[in-house]
Design a binder for these strands. Structure first.
Lengths: 342, 342
DNA sequence: TATCAAATCGAAAACGTTTTCGGTATTTCG
DNA sequence: CGAAATACCGAAAACGTTTTCGATTTGATA
């Protein structure tokens, strides 16, 4: 029992391959009688077009590539979810690759996807990405391309982001509004744009409230892990025992801080208030419940795909597409870890 | 600037397409001189074979399909991670689809993947899956196929699982060993094999300790969510205020229980002990830290792909492959939520 | 009846690769 | 020197589809 082909149907019906193909695609120049015969035989033989041949002929695969730093990550898995769902709705499949925060891998994976001739690429950069050449290659090959969250500002592609500066500023302002003034920041690595922007947002909030910036209150994560949260919490208490609040680059790190403070008996928020970023699921079930900044991760995925789809459609019709940047809304979620100071 | 092809290289070098192809694949019947010329020109033109044409010719795409119920899920995202990593190591890409626990979607997606002519399929069934026809279709088409975690026992394919019965029995035994005897079970839906097995394990543990089974202590999740954990916790306390322990089908549900108990001031484990399943990341950062059963999720992904690869290799060489079932080890992780009763 | 339009069909090229098989040209050896 | 072995190359088929363009038939109209 082999796969049915156009040729087979044509032979059984004593007509040409051309006519069979046209009948199945409802061309107007095939008689109703022939159409019916073809369609019913096709159904009987369980015919489905060989996608390899279709790909070759049409030069598209209805498949896109997605590269993210980490799959096991509340934010990213939500984005994946959004992209995969929206893609499927539009007849596209998604190949997922994980760069593991390694520039080298990321480059290889871009090459892999180009090689596979995916119809488009969506990417969120690894922390190491200070080299743009692979992204430029995507553009040079005119492959539809969208960046999200961790982007290269200078690469001229569509982008889906939040305003990290303002979001971070709001988070720190929230701490200040609730009576905390000596605030430490556990920031992300030096390269990624969003770590930089959140750091700038932190500084701006201080500035707007006439709180002098103290560089010794800033701690820099290398890997942005739970363990780093624990380690920096310890370090902060050693360096600044009078610290009042901590703003962490992401919930995972903030949870490390919480965990350490809980273990050694530091009261949150009475002694130190903590706010994270990204609104991971676990943040709402911790004790105390962690305040954070909500980031529309699922929507980010959906929007990214929609933008990519637009560009892919233009690409197919060979009409020009002008990359757009879409900024999604965030909002501070106040929970127990930042209750108002009495 | 177009894509370089074999034809182009052949013309520029004044040789045949055949020779170019052979030179690039290091066939022995091409002279060193020609090989060098071809290879260097290919590099110069940035040639890479058109994968659409290669697919069509070789009848394989070096791509596999993966269908899981949920992407945003600690266990599944870890499995994805394992599969994607192992696949990439072996030159395969992974298309990911999410069935959203819907049988209908799952069927559609299987059809989609068959249509795409992926080289193999890995699947973890949705809770609704009491219909096997789409899986039988995969087998009938001789597409290499591996099931993991939520499997259909009767489908003759390779499988990667844990022993849910024993794992659950151990979890409940752990509660009993620590002095808890009146134990409720929040089970999963009625269909999935692993929910059934874990329920059987629960019963066996009771039996082995001469604790009479009480059906009213068993609560059945529909969606296996955090919220259901909260709701059932409330219900359990209403039905059996003297309950001593709770074994939940998965950590997410157990965390719901914890969350509710924390909110209304029920002490864990002093008043009620709680144990979950799967060892989600958040379980170790909660207060109290949640006891659970560790399930080697990443390894499950890696093993699934390895099995699939074996079958794909056999398939290519047209040698027979006998499906295997691999059972991975689990272990109870004792944390604060099940501390020994005094 | 001659003419023209509409309806229906098919030949053939094209997509780019892989591989079989046979054909030269060159070398080796008796 | 002739025959056999070896080294090197290319023609062509095949994978299965899509689409252009021209051919044929049919029916309608003047």
């Amino acid at each position: 029992m082999k796969e049915a082909t156009l040729k087979e149907i044509a032979e059984k019906l004593g007509i040409s391959i051309t006519t069979v193909s046209k009948a199945l695609k409802d061309y107007p120049d095939v008689s109703l009688k022939t159409k019916d015969a073809v369609i019913s035989l096709a159904k009987k033989l369980n015919y489905s077009p060989n996608s390899f041949a279709v790909n070759l002929r049409t030069k598209e695969s209805k498949t896109i590539g997605l590269i993210i730093p980490e799959i096991v990550h509340h934010f990213f898995s939500n984005v994946i979810n959004g992209i995969v769902a929206e893609a499927e709705k539009n007849g596209y499949l998604v190949i997922i690759l994980q760069s593991n925060e390694s520039l080298e891998l990321e480059k290889k994976q871009v090459a892999l996807l180009i090689n596979k001739r995916v119809d488009g690429i969506i990417i969120s950069l690894s922390n190491e990405s200070n080299d743009d050449s692979h992204l430029k290659e995507i553009i040079a090959r005119k492959i539809p391309f969208v960046q999200f969250d961790k982007i290269a500002k200078l690469i001229h592609s569509s982008k889906v982001v939040i305003n990290d500066q303002i979001a971070a500023r709001n988070a720190v302002q929230h701490l200040i509004d609730n009576g905390y003034r000596k605030i430490a920041h556990i920031r992300g690595p030096l390269n990624p744009q969003n770590a930089i922007d959140r750091f700038i947002g932190y500084k701006k909030a201080l500035e707007m409230n006439n709180i002098p910036f103290d560089a010794s209150l800033v701690y820099t994560c290398e890997k942005v892990t739970f363990q780093e949260g624990i380690d920096f919490a310890k370090q902060i208490m050693a360096d600044h025992s009078d610290v009042e609040g901590i703003f962490a680059i992401t919930d995972l790190v903030a949870v490390g801080v919480l965990s350490y403070f809980n273990d050694i008996g530091i009261k949150i928020p009475e002694q130190v208030a903590v706010i994270g970023f990204s609104n991971w699921f676990m943040s709402q079930v911790l004790t105390p419940k962690l305040s954070t900044v909500d980031q529309p991760s699922h929507e980010m995925g959906v929007t990214s795909f929609k933008l990519l789809l637009e560009e892919m459609n233009c690409h197919k019709k060979e009409i020009h597409f002008t990359p757009r940047t879409i900024e999604l809304e965030t909002k501070v979620i106040a929970r127990e870890s930042t209750f108002k100071k009495k």
